[in-house]
Computed example of a mutant assay.
Amino acid sequence: MTDAVVFEVSRGRLLLIGLVLGPLMTGAGVLILTAALNPAAVQWLAPASPLVWLLYLVIGGVGTAFFGFATVVGWLTLLRKPGAGLVVDADGFTDTSSGIAAGRTTWDQVTGWHLQHVQRQVNLCVMVQDPDSVLARMGPIKRLMSRGNVKLVGTPVCIGLTNLRGGPEPVLAAFEEYHGQWLSRNSGAGER
């Protein structure tokens, strides 16, 4: 492999998520918030106690804000993004496959990687020498969400392979090949 390998994002899956799940979850948040603020409008969901009312208010407000924001940002990202979600080359890789993608990571930062299966999602978790430096170059919302990845899998660099065309095998092959080439050029400066 001498040139960069480009893995495109499957737009059909993203459109399904953006058209169905985002608006559905935002609508659920609005419904719960409406039940808290105007119980007469949604009598079947009216809170039965002040504690339930407070719970509705918090869940409805946070759910509406989070899923509404994620839906709008997701659509804007999808509309302006070129087809490449992951580009692997001789110096590293660039991940732009999701809203919390880490961007550019060079091979000298990589200490290893592993697959993480969560329900039907397959993620390539790339271990890096300094997770804090990766987090520092992200915006505040990306950073907050990526800190969750650090707690769950030990790294902020998690590439969702389910949304990439071709599946995990070609991505793993490209990582093995290019990282191996980098190690050869740099006389074993890092280990897999």
Score class of each variant (00 low, 15 high):
Gly85Met: 06
Arg137Gln: 12
Ala90Leu: 13
Ser184Asp: 15
Ala65Gln: 04
Phe7Ala: 06
Ser146Trp: 04
Val122Phe: 02
Val62Met: 02
Trp113Cys: 02
Ser49Arg: 01
Ala28Tyr: 02
Gly92Lys: 03
Ile141Thr: 11
Val128Cys: 05
Pro156Trp: 00
Pro23Val: 10
Leu54Glu: 00
Leu37Glu: 01
Leu21Glu: 10
Thr155Gln: 05
Arg120Tyr: 12
Ala48Asp: 13
Asp3Cys: 03
Gln129Asn: 09
Pro82Arg: 12
Asp3Tyr: 01
Val72His: 04
Gly190Tyr: 06
Ser97Leu: 11
Gln129Ile: 09
Val6Thr: 09
Ile159Glu: 01
Leu51Pro: 00
Ser97Val: 07
Ala173Thr: 00
Ile159Ser: 07
Pro170Glu: 03
Gly160His: 05
Thr111Trp: 03
Ala174Ile: 13
Leu144Tyr: 15
Arg147Tyr: 02
Trp107Asp: 06
Asn163Thr: 13
Gln121Leu: 14
Val150Glu: 00
Leu124Cys: 04
Gly154Phe: 05
Gly188Ile: 11
Ala101Phe: 08
Thr64Asn: 01
Val110His: 06
Leu124Ala: 09
Ile100Asn: 12
Gln43Tyr: 10
Asp89Gly: 15
Arg104Met: 04
Arg143Leu: 08
Gln181Trp: 05
Lys81Trp: 14
Ala189Cys: 09
Arg192Met: 14
Val88Lys: 03
Met127Val: 11
Pro140Ser: 06
Glu176Met: 05
Met145Gln: 15
Gly12Glu: 08
Leu124Tyr: 01
Arg137Ala: 11
Arg80Val: 13
His114Glu: 12
Gln109His: 08
Tyr56Met: 11
His114Met: 04
Cys158Phe: 00
Leu15Gly: 13
Val128Asn: 00
Gln129Lys: 14
Ala90Met: 11
Glu191Gln: 13
Thr77Cys: 01
Gly27Ser: 15
Gly139Leu: 07
Cys125Lys: 00
Leu183Cys: 15
Val5Met: 11
Arg192Asn: 13
Thr2Ser: 08
Val62Gln: 04
Leu152Glu: 13
Lys151Tyr: 09
Ser10Asn: 14
Asn163Ser: 15
Thr162Met: 09
Val157Asn: 03
Gly12Trp: 08
Leu78Cys: 08
Asp132Glu: 01
Gly139Val: 10
Trp107Cys: 10
Leu57Glu: 01
Gly112Tyr: 07
Met145Gly: 06
Leu172Met: 12
Val134Lys: 02
Met127Asn: 11
Arg137Ser: 12
